[in-house]
Design a protein around this nucleic acid. Structure first.
Length: 580
DNA sequence: GCCGTTTTCGGCCCGACTGTTTTCAGTCG
């Protein structure tokens, strides 16, 4: 049978939730299905694999009932109970849920009353003025639906990489800060939590004049449509298709707003449930204790009031951080300032590489590293093309490059230099540089750069082979994902982690904004296996060495401490891991 | 439907905004 992906399962669970919702089903059952869908989407393993290993119950939010439905799904490709739930619903309603502002009830009513089968049908109905006559709808909602459909069609993508989202946020922030009553303006939500991709932009403003700020915000020149605008809250859609949500709160109570709007939703819900058990009520205004609202200037005060330690934004995903904060066992996360070197750097040295050459000379890279206060760097160009060079040619090119780097080592005293190469793990599992070439280096970074679509077994074998090679010190961008472009390949990660630990091979957290690979959830797993991680920029141009903080944020989201990250070590310690 | 060292039953976050209403339901974050 065809492999059913987590994405498809999440979509199915959401459809069931919508079906229950449309027909006035139990509110908590609806939430349970939505939670299950979220959880499936965030799972680090494919559910089909977990099911085969009898480990479905390791996924939070999947209880007895949903697990048995999934069991049926994997066995037969179908779930009778789901069919039953959706039996009497117009199939067209589910597509309508993609339209902004339409939830299950409206979608159900529209699909049923107007007999529309898809978004296109609905658009035609709206244009003919058929929606305004339905009970509960009117001319305004008809127009809103038309606008939302237009935006749905225009929208180039639904998520964005962090640097892009920060760029957009910065424009809005500097505009908001122009207002005389704006005390503070901060990007929050997934942007502040540094999630790998961001769906919309959340901004909070501290001001004693919320109305004035909202009015100012509504005049931001890049706004295509104002979705809503109230006394303290507004949402708009920009011409580039990105939605910006704004919340305003007086400065003396800004802490609770920061906390609320940073999220995540699951973190907040859990926090509020715990507060309730302790007879407190949490909202974005503050914490109500014995009927009295307590306000907080900052988040430290806020978390303290709930009897827990301050939780870093990157950890707020409700994956155990609240329990740890309560017990006082949160890890002390690695910081950007802890990073002492970057060893995945591509230069313009003419090595006739298999993949892209860098833009800058060794000397330029060294200068940039000094400006970043690094103690060391690793020069790690791609190895010479495997199919285009003979083994002897590869070795000769590495010799020339090694001579040049050895000269630099002698003339550069302030900064440690490693002579590395990023080599390919070929589809056979073989390495793209012969032993004679590897011996000339201080070590190698090995990565998969081809045949990403191999099955799990083959990919795992390739990674394990690389680990076994004593010259390979690092596995680069371990899952091969390209955010918004290419999915990770699947591998037996526990086996890879075990091998890394046993062979002292480091796993890279690649800071390139569309990689961020290892992904945060796997970082956390790797740490449980005591794997050493290393954060590298993979820069092909010196300014890209400044991407390091994106990699650090991935490590932080994976709960990494300084001790988990190899390149927080000073040079004298760090170099011991290489053949120098 | 899920979940649990105060529970295997009885809970399940909290609020803003809008359009279509005559006080609120639906949607969203």
């Amino acid at each position: 049978m065809r492999f059913i992906t987590n994405k498809e399962i999440a979509q199915l669970l959401r459809a069931v939730s919508a079906a229950y919702s449309a027909t006035g089903g139990d509110r908590f059952k609806i939430i349970a299905y939505d939670n299950a869908a979220d959880s499936v989407e965030h799972a680090t393993s494919e559910l089909k694999d977990l099911w085969e290993e009898n480990k479905l119950d390791s996924v939070p939010g999947l209880g007895k009932s949903i697990q048995s439905h999934l069991d049926e799904l994997f066995k037969t490709g179908n779930v009778k109970h789901f069919d039953e739930v959706m039996k009497n619903l117009p199939p067209g309603m589910f597509e309508l849920l993609n339209i902004g502002g339409l939830g299950p009830k409206s979608a159900y009513k529209l699909a049923k009353e107007l007999q529309v089968k898809n978004v296109k049908d609905l658009e035609n109905a709206a244009k003919k003025g058929k929606i305004r006559n339905l009970a509960g709808f009117g001319p305004k909602s008809e127009q809103d639906i038309l606008s939302a459909i237009e935006e749905l069609n225009l929208k180039p993508q639904t998520r964005y990489t962090l640097p892009f989202a920060y760029g957009v946020a910065d424009n809005v922030l500097s505009y908001l800060r122009q207002h005389k009553d704006c005390d503070r303006a901060e990007p929050l939500g997934s942007l502040r939590r540094m999630v790998a991709t961001v769906g919309d932009i959340d901004i909070a403003v501290a001001s004693e004049n919320p109305k004035g700020i909202i009015e100012h915000f509504k005049k931001f020149p890049q706004i295509k449509r104002i979705l809503d605008a109230g006394e303290r809250k507004s949402s708009v859609l920009l011409f580039n298709g990105i939605q910006v949500d704004l919340l305003v709160q007086p400065t003396h109570a800004f802490g609770a707003l920061l906390q609320h709007f940073t999220g995540s939703k699951n973190h907040n819900v859990h926090l509020r449930e715990i507060a309730l058990k302790n007879k407190m009520s949490v909202s974005d205004y503050g914490i109500t204790i014995k009927g009295k609202l307590n306000e907080y200037k900052n988040e430290h005060q806020f978390y303290r009031a709930l009897n827990m330690d301050y939780i870093e934004p990157e950890m707020r995903e409700d994956t155990g951080e609240i329990e740890a904060a309560t017990k006082g066992t949160l890890p002390k996360l690695v910081k950007v300032e802890d990073i002492k070197g970057d060893i995945h750097l591509h230069s313009s040295f003419a090595i006739e590489p298999s993949h892209d050459l860098g833009q800058n000379s060794f000397e330029e890279i060294i200068e940039k590293a000094k400006s970043l206060n690094y103690e060391y760097i690793g020069l790690s160009d791609h190895s010479p093309g495997f199919s285009t060079h003979s083994k002897q040619q590869i070795v000769d090119l590495i010799k020339q490059r090694t001579d040049k780097i050895e000269q630099l080592k002698n003339s550069t005293k302030q900064i440690g230099i490693l002579n590395l190469l990023e080599i390919d793990i070929l589809n056979t599992g073989e390495i793209s540089v012969p032993e004679e070439g590897l011996k000339l280096l201080d070590g190698a970074i090995a990565g998969i750069h081809s045949s990403h679509r191999q099955d799990k077994k083959s990919i795992t074998k390739r990674l394990l082979n690389a680990c076994e090679n004593p010259h390979v010190k690092v596995i680069s961008h371990p899952t091969g994902r390209l955010l918004l472009q290419r999915e990770s390949y699947d591998a037996n990660w526990p086996a890879v982690f075990e091998a890394c630990k046993n062979t002292h091979t480091m796993l890279e957290i690649n800071a390139w904004p569309s990689r961020l690979d290892l992904p945060d959830a796997l970082v956390r797993e790797a740490i449980k296996y005591k794997v050493k991680l290393i954060i590298n920029s993979d820069a092909h141009e010196v300014s890209q060495m400044e991407n390091m903080p994106f990699g650090v944020s991935v490590a932080r989201r994976g709960w990494a401490t300084k001790e988990n990250i190899a390149n927080t070590l000073p040079w004298v310690e760090f170099k011991k891991m290489f053949d120098v």
